[in-house]
Simulated scan of single mutants.
Amino acid sequence: MTMKTAGRAATSVFLLATSGAFASEMSFTGTARTDAGEVLYVETHGVSGTCEDGVFAPQEHRVGYQRQEQDSAFATKKLDYTGSVIRPSVDFRQPEFDESLSIEYSGQDTLVINWQMPEGESRTFDVPYSNNVVVDAGFDNFVRRNWQAVLNGDSVEFRFLGPTRGEHYAFVLEAADSSKVTADHVVQIRPTGMILRFLVDPIILGYDSRGVLTDYYGLTNIRKNKDMNFTAHIQYSVVNWPDCELTP
């Protein structure tokens, strides 16, 4: 390490210490099953971030998707939350179908989607967005950001990005009753537009009392074939907790 590098590291440590923030990590796994209980794949999640004022703030999130009989991942995802905890940049790759999807931010109010489709075609979308737009796994942080509303049973409106359509749509986060998910708190995110409500099923989410996601039931980003993705019940288990709370 050079003197300049050492100086930068020392400065970073000092700034974190004086701001009440320090580095922390979280890891967890998810097992995706069909309605019949058949295991489809296992997700391995590693999240690095900081504890700020006693609450975990994710910065980088890596996901590996692996079948039980295989030693290596068949798909990967990387999310970067440094710009926003509800609008991460995304790099998703599914080599089996020659598919990739990236979401980046070219300006203050525009995101860019690059989708390499299974058929070999590619599409690019420039999508304007506002502060209430949620992207990909940012929904999890959105739920925790609105944790008091979840506890109170209130509804929260937002917009959710449909990356392969190049548009975001009106959704609502609300309490739910479901035979699919059993958890301390069960909520759903569903579209509010009349047409989309007939085309897109709600995503059912389970959270425990500490604010960690325990269940996801709905459409996944993993392909069943080139024409459709799996719908699955994913149950999560924490391997390593961060050194602070997940909710305010």
Rank of each mutant, 00 (worst) to 15 (best):
D154G: 08
S178G: 06
N114I: 06
R159P: 03
F125V: 00
G107R: 00
E167R: 14
F142E: 01
S130H: 15
D136G: 04
V133P: 06
R145L: 14
D136Q: 10
D184N: 11
G153S: 08
S122A: 12
V134Y: 06
D177W: 06
E104R: 09
D140Y: 05
T182Y: 00
Y105L: 02
V156Y: 09
P118E: 05
F160K: 12
P118R: 09
Q148A: 08
N131V: 12
T182V: 12
F171R: 01
W147A: 09
G153N: 09
S178K: 09
S106T: 11
F125K: 02
A149P: 00
S178D: 13
H185G: 01
A183K: 03
P163N: 11
N114T: 15
S122T: 12
S155T: 10
A175P: 09
A137F: 12
T110V: 11
N146P: 09
L173P: 04
V156C: 12
S155R: 11
F171H: 12
A175H: 13
R144D: 01
P163M: 05
F158H: 14
D177N: 08
V135A: 02
L161Q: 03
P128Y: 03
P163I: 08
Y129H: 12
D140W: 06
H168N: 12
G153V: 07
R145M: 12
S179G: 10
V133A: 02
N131K: 07
Q116H: 12
T110Q: 13
E119V: 12
S179R: 11
T164Y: 02
L151N: 08
D109I: 03
V150N: 07
N152Q: 15
F142S: 02
F139Q: 09
V143M: 04
A137R: 13
Y129N: 02
V181T: 04
S122W: 06
E157L: 09
V143T: 08
V112F: 05
G107S: 15
D126W: 03
S179I: 07
R123D: 10
L111A: 00
Q116K: 13
